[in-house]
Design a protein around this nucleic acid. Sequence first.
DNA 1: CTGTTAGCGCATTCAC
DNA 2: GTGAATGCGCTAACAG
Lengths: 320, 320
Amino acid sequence: MTVSRALRDGASIAAETRDKIMKAVEQLGYVLDQSAGSLSSKRTGFVAVLVPSINNSNFADTARGLTDALQGSGLQLLLGYTDYLIEKEEELIESMLRRRPEAIVVTGGKHTPRGRKLLEKAGIPVIETWDLPPKAVRHVVGFSNAEAAEALVRYLHEKGYRKIGFIGGTSNRDTRGADRRLGYERAMAALGLMDTRIISFGTPPISMKQGGEALAQLIEQWPDVEAAICVSDLSAFGALTECQRRKIPVPNRIAIAGFGDFEISSCSHPSITTVGVNCYDIGRRSGELLLRAIEGERARRPIAAETIMTQYSVIARDSA
Amino acid sequence: MTVSRALRDGASIAAETRDKIMKAVEQLGYVLDQSAGSLSSKRTGFVAVLVPSINNSNFADTARGLTDALQGSGLQLLLGYTDYLIEKEEELIESMLRRRPEAIVVTGGKHTPRGRKLLEKAGIPVIETWDLPPKAVRHVVGFSNAEAAEALVRYLHEKGYRKIGFIGGTSNRDTRGADRRLGYERAMAALGLMDTRIISFGTPPISMKQGGEALAQLIEQWPDVEAAICVSDLSAFGALTECQRRKIPVPNRIAIAGFGDFEISSCSHPSITTVGVNCYDIGRRSGELLLRAIEGERARRPIAAETIMTQYSVIARDSA
DNA sequence: CTGTTAGCGCATTCAC
DNA sequence: GTGAATGCGCTAACAG
């Protein structure tokens, strides 16, 4: 018991005893067993976070925001990657729950029925992010991907573009990508532009290379297209370089726009018009909400469900 | 006990009993407590993996290789991000060890003294990757970053370039980046090119934008420079677009080369000459080695220390 | 095929 | 400031 106290902070221990213990600990390379500790204390000290991809700077920024918000709370993140698949999400939810997280953050509002049920019955705070689900499990921190895409279409329309195409993946696996396409269609209709030009190419998330190939399809199918909205900045960059290889001037002959404001969009030449999403902020606010929710659970006074809307904005650059 | 058996596979249970249990499980949303389970069984079922960055496709590929190798073994990855800081690595090693991983994979061979000691005393298989440390903790799966950079210098030399510069970060925080610079210096000396041109700019890992700014410094300081080797493809891309903004023809006026073979290098226009590293393979082979090592531990017959060298190769593209 | 006993390594609680 | 008893939720081992 004395060792246990010495290894946690804030307990009253004689300096001499503590030193003796610490010396032995160093010498042995002893490290506390947290499974045993949390079994006893009923606090695991971690939060499960499920994001679609390990390699997407948008979600990395969200994770950073979460990490920063949880700084000093004694809570760690445990990240899981769903690969944009709700089936994989379901598996991850279960395997995370087995480790008894104190809260869980998921990306998006679409889950398998069992995944949803697991979240509902988990008995811990749940936050859905990056989206505004029609029927939230509980807390939400996100924005409407459809509305953000609509704003981009309206921006291009104001700039004088009319024959606007959309490049995205072949399935609805990336539900946020599907929402963006929906927003494109809605905005086009609202503007009286009934001739949508949609290319679906590649399994989401589509790569730079696939963005290039999709652009080739777009101009082949609709040679009169004036602007291409791509489901993400990466595919937009691929589309841009495909134009460069074909000596098609951007934005003079065709405009390109992306989504997400990745570094590549500000750095490419020409720079790429895109929609900036407050990725870091989504994480940060999720983290803050989380802390309050966990506090509420511990005090046996659960907080009410909250929906926090984050901002997005069209970022005008040279490609459009 | 019967419930416990029903929830794991391979145990002999009457179908009827199992069904009854499963029904109750579904109804309650019951999920096994893995902390308790592993406390009892002494198997946590996970492997700790420490990589420098959450948002680097090279390390993401290594993680994918590891995941694939561990597929079906019942072992999960628990990723930690060191932010290229060995101090942060030390903290992570300790917090991982508290959760009792069955093995640990770290990136690089440089650790804090305490970090190293923790690894040595952990009593589990340790694999250092992405490097060939002079004094390995135990197992190694990697390559010499210095040699890979040397190969790139020799390639540029063969192509006729003589005034070759190097762009990297300001500190040795990214030890693999520092090794690459070392390789550049060694190769230049070996080729009798004594006038090295080194720009150190920005905290590692340097971004696209910083790559561009570094290139500006390089041509300002050495207007005669013929080729720029960048510590990574991302900075190389930044350097390339900076040239494009300044209307400096690449590769005619200045050649650009990167490191890592990120997607952007094959997709940019012009495409970027780089060094391909078998990131996925590093992960895959680490995973395979890991499984053998864990098997050895369980059988109380630890396997001997191994060093597996992975391949790299210069990938000739348009930028040089 | 099912049940009983014991113990994993800690932290909580209370006693001193 | 330190220690003893107890139990967290599970599984290993063995009994039936």
